[in-house]
Design a protein around this nucleic acid. Sequence first.
DNA 1: ACGATATATGAACGTGTGTTCATGTAAGCG
DNA 2: CGCTTACATGAACACACGTTCATATATCGT
Lengths: 125, 125
Amino acid sequence: MDDKKTRRPAAECEIDFIDERKVKRVRRAMKSVEAITSLAETFRVLGDPTRIRIAFALSREELCVCDIANLLGVSQSAVSHSLRTLRQMKLVRFRKEGKIAYYALDDDHIAELLEVGFGHVEEKR
Amino acid sequence: MDDKKTRRPAAECEIDFIDERKVKRVRRAMKSVEAITSLAETFRVLGDPTRIRIAFALSREELCVCDIANLLGVSQSAVSHSLRTLRQMKLVRFRKEGKIAYYALDDDHIAELLEVGFGHVEEKR
DNA sequence: ACGATATATGAACGTGTGTTCATGTAAGCG
DNA sequence: CGCTTACATGAACACACGTTCATATATCGT
């Protein structure tokens, strides 16, 4: 009853696995969906030049919003929005001193991610 | 001659710097635009659950497209598109054996990024 | 050579993202 | 107080992104 000329969609391979042993090993080691989701969000947040620059700057110095904006040459509003995104993923923390908000990296993992990342891209050329 | 009621846009802070010394130190250490752009793209590519899962799987085993699709439960087309994205950023490499394409992580930096990243998100809860 | 299989890819659709603009809030200062 | 400053945020727009669908390419078996 199939139409004669429609090739099967072939959406997936017909056989289930090429090498089921390897697949099972990986499946056992696979991280939880929460960990995957969370890590993907972390990387996504760092997947923007402005936020990378902010994170790198904060890996060197604790800085206020105004200085970050001037350092990067972008508007205060853009910096504030970016900082909020970084804050939501707990990549940065801040303390308030009067009117001024001082931001810093929340923990050393972020600086390490940046180091490893820059090591990767600098080697790749 | 200004309209009387329009507040200055205040797009940027009026004073140039709160702490110019810190800003100058960071500016000297700041990475090149190419490095920043490249790292941002790398993180952006990893900022997707499907590609994270693919990268993690490939950090454990060399796998063909078909097995990856079955492992993750997504279509072959989606996997192929994701692999292309990963390939373009040189995060994965592949070798072809007949009809079958075997993919693997291109270098150890990627596995290290995943390790550090998972360490970060698993500590954060 | 033909059909089946493994993978790649272009187009298109809905959704998400980053910036800007305008405005809000809170703290210092005269 | 009222004004200014430092920062936060909501709306909106233009653009990018991930998936699906359909189809193309390449290789194997017969």
